[in-house]
Amino acid sequence: MQQEKLSAPYKSVGEAKIYDYDPDLSAHPIPPHLHAIPNQANHKVDSVLMRFERLLNWTFRSMMLLAGLGLAVLMFSQVIMRYVLESPFTGIEEASILLAVWIYFLGMGYATREREHIHGGIVSLIVKDPYKVGVIRFIGSITCMIAAIIFGYFACKYALKELDRGRLSVNLRWPRGLWSASMIVGFAMMVGYFLLETINEFRYLRRTRRARQSQQQAEV
C-alpha cells in the first residue's frame, strides 16, 4: 500500500484538547481556561507538590492504559473463545464491567484534571471583562468541588459498606469492593483536581487584581 500524503495539517488525536481555544475550529477567541495543574511552579512548595502530582498522574495514566486496552482484548477474546475453543468464560460480564467502571471513573477524574468535562455556557460571550469571567469560573470551580465532596461522601459510604460486608461477585467470587473502589478513586480525583483548579483560579484573580491596582496607581 503506497503511503500517500494526507491533505491537511495533521494533529495527533492523543494530544487534542477539548475546550481550549483552537484557531482551527473557532473564529473568536475566548479567555483561556485555567487547568487544575499550573504550567509552571511559583513557589518551592508548588514544585514539590507538582512532582508528587506527576507521580500520581503516572499511576492514573498507567491504570487507564491497562483498563482501556484490557477491555478491548477481553471482549475480543470472548468471540474467539466462543468460536474457536467453544468454551465461554463465565465471568466475562463481571470482568468486562470491572474494567469498564474503572475506565468510567478514572476517565471522570482525569477529565477533571484536563478540564474536559462536557459543559455548555455562555459566560465568556456575555461577560467581556476577563476579571469577571475569572470570578464566575472561580465560583464554578468551588461549587463543583463542594458538589464532588458531597457525591464522594455517598459514594464512599456505599463502597465501604460493600468492602465491609465482604460481598463477592456471583461468578468470579471476587470481592465487590474491587468494582466500587473505582468510584472512591474517581471521586477522590475529582475533589482533588477541582481543589487545585480552585486554587489556580484564586491565584489568577489575586494576580489580576494586583496588576490592576498597580496600573491604577501608576495612572494616578
Binding site: S12, V13, G14, E15, A16, I18, R61, M64, L65, A67, G68, L69, I103, Y104, F105, L106, G107, M108, G109, Y110, A111, E114, E116, H117, I118
Partner: peptide, 13 residues
Amino acid sequence: GAVTIRAVTMTGS
C-alpha cells in the same frame, strides 16, 4: 498510548 488515554478520558466525560 496517548490515544488510549484520550479514549478513556472522553468516555469519562
